[in-house]
Write a protein that binds this DNA or RNA. Structure first.
Lengths: 213, 213
DNA sequence: CCGCATCCCATGTGATACTG
DNA sequence: CAGTATCACATGGGATGCGG
């Protein structure tokens, strides 16, 4: 499968041969959130043709990056331990690309998995450790997430649960994360709509999740 | 140029749209070592077709990742400040791919720039800070490098200069970096040939440059 | 020479349809 | 649901050419 190799003996080229093909790292990104079925992956990557998804899944298995969950009735894909070690790569890419995100175009969507990884990218563990444990219920367009911060650890799931602050946010939430837009102002102009709980907690959210732009 | 976009509003997809095309990150890798001319880039990427190199250079300029060095008689490409911020991405990819590097195939070559970035990836700043300043002259196949370690800083150039230890190493040097092969043993079996200076300094080299496998 | 541009062909990609 | 089959098209690869 590595017929498309780069002809160099180098770690970067090796990595790109394994996961550098189109869509490859996006599949990894979604699997970093958790094991997924074929259909879930397809749903999280709306523009991927089914044949490409099938091909990539096979290549990533051959590369030892993912494997099918054994002794499971249905087919579930999961990262191998080696595949999980791609997290720093995906986070670094996400942080870099964050700075080049303009405003969203109409066709651009937000998925739960991509948003989860974005939150992981922006999470400031050391800052969070100094703050009280907090649970947020956030709706980013169609993606509804339960965000639990407890000391230096972050847990993002799709489940429901008790939250201290529930809010719905438009894509401009990006500017809150980057510090360009103050939380109160974001609420004022409707970028963030508080659904439940004290809006002041959005300050804590902004301290916890931050990425320079 | 971003006609091939992923249809998602996400940092990772944005990054991949800007530098994720084939050869893109390898051009960035080489430019992280220093500004380069078209011909130098082509020489460091032996299999890249000239039309692709030209296309990528234009795309990377449009993306704000590289630019032509201004007021220079000849054309020289250089990373922009934003492009330089890709260093963590390239290093993370290199570290990950390092673990999947088997033994080199015949057609695979080693270039000076890729080796330089590999050394930066493996460099352990905190370990080096505790060791005396050392200069190594290393020949990795066709790539001849002057490696200067001074406290926590690393400087790798192609120039010549006084060195404490000069050696030539085959591709198996990888196993020294990974800790699988002890430095003395590497000298014994000819993986490393000491050209000048005390071979015992190779121990220090192995302590300074290390990547788990 | 150096820095590309052009041509041609092989392969990869994408949309749609279809199957176990 | 989890893929395969098919086909049109875009892109990559390799050789060659060409102007400054």
């Amino acid at each position: 499968m590595a017929a498309r190799d780069y002809g160099q003996y180098c770690g970067v080229t090796r990595a790109l041969e394994l996961v550098g093909e189109r869509w490859g790292l996006l599949i990894v990104r979604d699997l970093l959130v958790g094991p997924r079925r074929y259909g879930e992956l397809a749903a999280g990557l709306p523009r991927i043709p089914s044949n490409i998804l099938a091909t990539r899944l096979k290549e990533l298995q051959a590369a030892g990056v993912i494997h099918r969950l054994p002794r499971s009735r249905v087919i579930i894909y999961e990262l191998t331990p080696y595949g999980r070690e791609l997290e720093p790569v995906v986070l670094a890419l996400g942080a870099w690309g964050f700075k080049a995100m303009g405003d969203p175009r109409d066709e651009q969507i937000v998925t739960a998995d991509s948003m989860t990884m974005a939150l992981r990218t922006a999470f400031r563990s050391t800052v969070a450790a100094e703050l009280p444990a907090t649970a947020y219920g956030a709706q980013f367009g169609p993606a509804e997430l339960l965000i639990r911060v407890d000391g230096p650890t972050l847990d993002v799931t799709r489940g429901d649960g008790p939250v201290d602050l529930a809010f719905a946010a438009g894509p401009q939430i990006r500017r809150v994360i980057s510090g360009e837009l103050a939380p109160e102002r974001a609420i004022e102009i409707g970028v963030v709509e508080v659904l439940r709980g004290p809006g002041a907690l959005l300050d804590r959210f902004a301290s916890t999740f931050h990425l320079a732009a």
